[in-house]
């Protein structure tokens, strides 16, 4: 019985150890940001967002224009 208990405990503790190691070495994209090309991706997304925002501003302007012409007619 005692042997079983001890071996169970040792299994549990070793699993704790392996968990601790895992959290120590969480994979992150450090290398990418340091020397890789993450800035390229940021630039691409910034261009997409900027383009959509300019599109929104254009739509807004067009609606204002139509609003004006409609109110002039009435």
């Amino acid at each position: 019985m005692r042997v079983v208990l001890l071996s169970l405990l040792s299994i549990i503790f070793t699993s704790f150890c392996s968990f601790a190691q895992n959290t120590d070495q969480v994979e992150m994209a450090d290398g990418l940001r340091a020397s890789g090309m993450i800035y390229v991706v940021v630039a691409v997304i910034a261009v997409i967002i900027l383009g959509m925002l300019i599109f929104l501003f254009g739509m807004d302007k067009r609606i204002s224009k139509i609003e004006k012409s409609v109110s002039n007619k009435n």
Binding site: N22, T23, V26, E27, M28, A29, R33, I38, Y39, V41, V42, I45, A46, I49, L50, L53
Partner: peptide, 25 residues
């Protein structure tokens, strides 16, 4: 709104984030 969103995209990719298992980046 435009400035805030552009900032959130750029800073959201480049700022440090906590290192957590499962979630990663």
């Amino acid at each position: 709104a435009s400035v805030l969103i552009l900032y959130s995209v750029i800073a959201g990719f480049l700022f440090e984030v906590p290192r957590l298992p499962i979630l990663h980046e």
